[in-house]
Design a protein around this nucleic acid. Sequence first.
DNA 1: CGTATTTGACCAAG
DNA 2: CTTGGTCAAATACG
Length: 335
Amino acid sequence: MELSWPESVLSNRERVMEELIQGRELASQLCKVLDDHKSTLVSGCGGGGGGDVGSAEGLVNKILGSFTNTLLILNGKEADGEIVSGDQIQGNSSGIGSADSSSWDANHAIIKSEDFHEEISCKSASTFKDRRGSYKRRKTSHSWTRDTPALTDDGHAWRKYGQKVIHNAKHPRNYFRCTHKFDQSCQATKHVQQILDDPPVFRTTYYGNHTCRDYLKASELILDCTSPRESSSFIRFGDIKQDHPFFSSFTSVKKEVVIKEEKPQPSDDMMASHHHNHSSSGDYNVSPHPTEFKSSCPLSGLSSTIDPYDHEGDVMSGLIVGPYYFDDEVLQYEF
DNA sequence: CGTATTTGACCAAG
DNA sequence: CTTGGTCAAATACG
């Protein structure tokens, strides 16, 4: 039984990362504990010794930051291509080196649909009906990943379109595309895969920017991300308690949070989520010009931005670039 | 009944 | 050949 990752795949670096992630997780929990203590003290004693706890909390926060930073540095190094073997984002190994190929998926999509039509007219004659997968494999387009200890909602409506068992990976990778792909020609996609089990870590890799306008005004979120961590009313996962000061704002949005509670299926696939998205009753109609979409969407809190090369001068570029860390997650971009 | 998910097939890249 | 990414028929869900 594979209790942990196959050693063959685990380099020292990866082990270090595992440790760091765990350390960070523990620190996070400690922070929680402190928080609880603090509140009980305050409510119980009234005005006892809050200062001590406060500094302890600060310490924990620093520790947390340290872990996160180290993780980031590790990732950064890899991303810089120092150790990465020019591979793309192959699930397991935290290697995330991607050489930018300044042609992004929009082209891809166009070509694809053209091919599609052509093939349909050409091949359908020879083949019957089952002709799937006519497109090119995604190269290394602009992408960024985010590691979270649990599945979180990013405020977008995603539709799962595939699931694959990845070689040397313990958990399958799930493929999502924006619900409004046809609706609004939104090309955003993401892959989600659990990369660690012990301290659960889910790696979400985002591709493309959302051009749809479904989620609420996320721009507000960005400006609002300075909000204190008070609003810890996010989702509680069995063991991992977390509060996302950032995402908590999303909670109000009724964006069906897709949470993987305990996968109902015997097989170990994560997020055998139950569907419940009643997207905006829009039906799919391939827009005539999937090419030209005016980026009217101000961009979400996390997606878009960082795309210096992006053909469609993206909206609000330069708002936030670079790695971001929240309490429990690591955010990293790749080009 | 319309929607989203599941799942095997298909296809391209390595 | 292997492997990852996508499609789409079948299925599940509300």
